[in-house]
Design a protein around this nucleic acid. Structure first.
Ligand SMILES: [Mn+2]
Ligand SMILES: [Mn+2]
Ligand SMILES: [Zn+2]
Ligand SMILES: [Zn+2]
Lengths: 147, 147
DNA sequence: TTGTATTTTAGAACTATTCTGACTTAAGAG
DNA sequence: CTCTTAAGTCAGAATAGTTCTAAAATACAA
């Protein structure tokens, strides 16, 4: 989450062979500066809030280009909702089904569990845990109890 | 995976307050008898293979009804692909990114890992592990080795 | 059997995403 | 710089998965 400078963002794009257009820059910069895993619609609204920056088609194009070089990934947690994430380091996700809040779960949280637990024959090379539950702000009306 | 008799299937539907129509029965029965997590399209083709059984709209309707009473669940593993599963017991999924084969991973495989590994404040009530890798039939071109 | 709320269905509508093709631009070469 | 052109942008059309509509059919309780 360390905020990247404009130069660093440009550097990353060029490093991956992407031309630096204002639209592409804006999409990536915006995605880097938020932790909420936005949808295309949300990106579109926020980017064009203070005057037009990017068309819808270009946001789709930019996300696709960024995805192809591995700077951005999709996150699929809900049916019919595609979210985008500029955190491409392996990690997991938590989703509050009360308020919809989504947050990252560090990769280390489920350390090494998977590799050892699969049946022989399956060669895992990636895995991801999705946890659904209730976040801090949405605790259900329970009186008092601990884990 | 124990094959259910027609009577048992009817019983389940009624138990959940669903009327037993030929279409709804066929959708649920088909889903119970396969382990491949089919899409709507695949269900449509297979159900109507030997003469018309159910329209597309009715398959969507049936799946929605079955889902609402908890007899069927969706499985989201790939972008833009919604799959259905009549196994509603908690379990995880493996997906071979070579052939697309999908298989269940028993719930016990990752027993108790999650509950203990989350930050305080989050109350998990469901979680799911998605493992991507290579299945038996798609082992990469390695010379010789055994399991 | 009958009555009625539910279900089925073809086709229309809707929605997220991709495509099209004319125009614009980033950036390397000279 | 200026030129050149492959790459990018964008409005609108097209596509695809899903839901809606409303008329006809039907499950099932009485
Ligand atoms: Mn994330
Ligand atoms: Mn399954
Ligand atoms: Zn919440
Ligand atoms: Zn395979």
């Amino acid at each position: 989450m360390t905020t990247l400078s404009a130069n660093e963002i440009v550097g990353r794009l060029k490093l991956h062979g992407l031309r630096v257009t204002p639209q592409r820059f804006a999409v990536y910069e915006n995605l880097l500066n938020r932790i909420d895993h936005p949808t295309v619609e949300q990106l579109l609204v926020e980017l064009n809030q203070a005057g037009p920056v990017s068309s819808q088609a270009t946001i789709y194009n930019s996300l696709q280009a960024l995805r192809e070089v591995g700077l951005v990934r999709q996150v699929l947690l809900e049916e019919g909702v595609v979210r985008y994430d500029a955190n491409v380091d392996p990690h997991h996700h938590f989703r509050c089904h009360s308020c919809g809040h989504i947050e990252d779960i560090p990769w280390e949280a489920f350390h090494e569990v998977v590799q050892s637990s699969l049946r022989p024959g399956l060669r895992p090379d990636r895995y991801e845990v999705t946890v659904m539950g209730t976040c801090d702000r949405c605790q259900p009306p329970e009186p008092q109890d601990a884990v």
